[in-house]
Design a protein around this nucleic acid. Structure first.
Lengths: 229, 229
DNA sequence: CGGTGCCTTGAACACAATCAAGTATGGTGG
DNA sequence: CCACCATACTTGATTGTGTTCAAGGCACCG
């Protein structure tokens, strides 16, 4: 299985927890394919085909608000993440899903949860993954709702940091391929606000940002901001 | 089964969709018991015992923010709703759950989803209910995040209206036992804001509010406000 | 070099929170 | 049944956070 990330950071450990949890499902995984950057994988309302497992790259799931303006980004998908969990009991996917950078993906093909030819234990296991991911998402939304922009962004960097640590990369030095605008859409704020806060965090010595490369200089300080009202 | 509501509104139809979807589960339902108003049913982090089915009354699920201040209300539970769906794959409930008015409840007792002694079809059915409720909640959170206070509150009244319609009561005249403060905590705004907007809606002839009694006068107008950015 | 898109920074504005009275309402005891 | 108190609700004034509008800078790429 190819878990190599496109960025050049050091790999510390090998296993992504999500992968190990998915052994049973992976038996049904189709061959890995490549999706080049800024390409749509799934259009809004498309028929459910199965789950996609991300091997490398980054994708976003977004909902276009009817009131023309900017998209709302509901998820970023990193290596080890499953795409489509929120549609597993539906006939169609929700929102459109597109790559931000070139991705390696594989499809775990099934039409319906009831048709997934795995054991009862694996079934329960899948449901636990589903439940866990929903709970994480739920927590994130509540945080976004009830916290200040500073807290949200600090929490975002902490989350990203954890993601990279889990994948075996350095948690304090990483590349985020998404634009400021996309981060803003994910956190439900204006891109100017993201810019301003990042600048402030830099002045306060919390982190350093150079284009899409980020260095966390003071994780404790960020955590403190993320936790306060 | 006692599905009578405590308020005095006309009952139009008999069935709550949630009840009919739950036939298999209901076979394991314990006897109905009464919880008097403003009483805690579940304290935060309590061990999972099963799902509670609401027969009458109203309950709230809330998370107390560590930063001392006011609670965040994550759910209101109406007759026909299941309490604990979000904890079905966990060992403990999340948040504390308390009645707002006197409630009739029954417990569907089981320790673990794997131990639920029902057929595969019922199992899948339960999961669909779970999935549906999470999707509804998810949609609600996204709306709350990305809409103005006006839209949120308009949407709240529309949702309440649908709830009552589903239960067979008049969708345009109903009693909401929760306080303004509780509505505010549910929608993540200040109670003063709720007051102001309700007053404005009244002036604009959209609805009429008298204490806890609400009359929707212009559903289309409310829907328009709920839908616009 | 001169573009184009992305990002940053500044200034003005708007929406909702907070602070602060003041007004109903409901429950309790006389 | 009324008087009283506590609580909930309303309304106004002020403040603050974040958006919007606008301009300028930087980098990548022809």
């Amino acid at each position: 299985m190819n878990t190599r990330h496109t960025s050049s950071h050091n790999k510390i450990t090998a296993a992504s927890p999500s992968f190990s949890e998915l052994k049973a499902l992976l038996a049904f995984s189709q061959p890995l394919f490549t999706l080049r950057k800024k390409t749509t994988l799934i259009t809004d309302g498309e028929k459910f085909k199965g789950l996609y497992l991300v091997h490398s790259g980054l994708l976003k799931q977004s909902q276009l608000k009817k009131t023309s303006e900017n998209e709302i980004i509901t998820h970023f998908f990193f290596p080890g993440d499953l795409i489509g969990l929120d549609s597993i009991f539906e006939n169609h996917y929700s929102g459109s899903i597109a790559s931000i950078e070139t991705c390696g993906l594989s499809l775990i093909k099934f039409h319906d949860i009831a048709n997934l030819p795995i054991t009862k234990e694996s079934h329960i296991q899948l449901l636990r993954i589903l439940s866990k991911s929903m709970r994480i998402e739920h927590t994130r939304l509540w945080r976004t709702l009830s916290q200040s922009s500073d807290s949200r962004l600090a929490y975002f960097f902490i989350t990203m940091s954890s993601k990279f640590r889990e994948q075996g990369y350095s948690p304090n030095s990483f590349r985020l391929p998404m634009s400021r605008q996309e981060i803003a859409n994910y956190l439900c704020m204006a891109s100017e606000t993201v810019s301003r806060i990042v600048s402030r965090f830099e002045n306060e010595g919390l982190l350093s940002a150079n284009g899409h490369e980020y260095f966390i200089l003071n994780p404790e300080g960020l955590a403190r901001i993320a936790e306060k009202a």
